[in-house]
């Protein structure tokens, strides 16, 4: 076990030297989580908006389901995706288990309910404000949803950010379906878990610092964007 100061020293050394392994892990993490958030937005935003705008049988049940799924334990999600992708599972033939794609799938499963549920609330509020005007202009259905999604774009960025936060910090699910294979499916969180268990705190700390830095960067960026939008009355 390294002492605390040495671990920090090693961590900053790895970051400042642009260590290739470190960069590879960070890039894979970003690739997996950003892909998952993008897919989750493509699925979750229309679902959330539809639940906000349409009145249909089972709508309340859908909302309850989305809210419940927001708290889905990652290891359970990992297990379910594992069962689907394993050789005995219905999607086993695709050979996706222990690949980055499997990690994107499981993160998408975790993030989509968050994006759908938060988007539903946000779009519902906007819909209350716009409803009569849009109907007066002759807008119905999908065109109403498109208008609401576009006009809520800055607030929805915050929703996407919440999804990214969940995805990039996740460890239990991606380790089940990704396997934490070196140079293949090793991401920041799984590496931190592995290196910590091995007592190699330098790399773990370096990744932890980058993880926090990324979080600050993304949060700060979205906050700045939103503040600009509010100042310009676009939010």
């Amino acid at each position: 076990m390294q002492d605390f100061g040495a671990a920090f020293g090693l961590a900053f050394g790895l970051i400042l030297s642009g260590d290739a392994d470190l960069a590879e892990i960070v890039m894979l993490s970003l690739q997996v989580s950003l892909s998952a958030v993008a897919v989750a937005c493509m699925i979750g935003l229309p679902i959330g908006a539809a639940a906000a705008v349409y009145r249909f049988p089972g709508r309340a049940a859908l909302v309850v389901f989305m809210n419940t799924m927001m708290g889905l334990p990652p290891v359970v999600a990992g297990l379910l995706v594992y069962l689907m992708l394993s050789n005995a599972g219905p999607l086993g033939g695709l050979g996706l288990l222990y690949t980055a794609t499997a990690m994107i799938i499981v993160q998408t499963v975790l993030v989509t309910p968050i994006i759908a549920a938060l988007a539903r609330q946000l779009i519902a509020d906007l819909h209350t404000e716009y409803d009569e005007q849009l109907r007066s202009l002759g807008l119905r259905g999908i065109r109403t949803i498109a208008t609401l999604l576009w006009d809520g774009r800055y607030s929805l960025l915050t929703v996407a950010l919440a999804g990214f936060g969940r995805a990039v910090a996740e460890v239990g699910a991606v380790i089940i379906v990704g396997g934490n294979i070196n140079h293949a499916t090793r991401v920041m969180t799984t590496t931190i878990a592995l290196e910590t268990s091995k007592g190699d705190l330098g790399l773990a700390l370096a990744l932890g610092i980058i993880l926090i830095g990324l979080s600050v960067l993304v949060n700060g960026g979205v906050l700045a964007l939103r503040a600009t939008a509010v100042r310009s009355a676009y939010a």
Binding site: E129, Y130, E132, Q133, S136, T147, D151, A233, Y234
Partner: peptide, 17 residues
């Protein structure tokens, strides 16, 4: 008929655009 009528509200509802 719906396309040939329009309405203006007390508080103008303007898009965030």
């Amino acid at each position: 008929v719906r396309r040939r009528q329009a309405m203006v509200f007390q508080r103008p509802v303007l898009l965030r655009r």
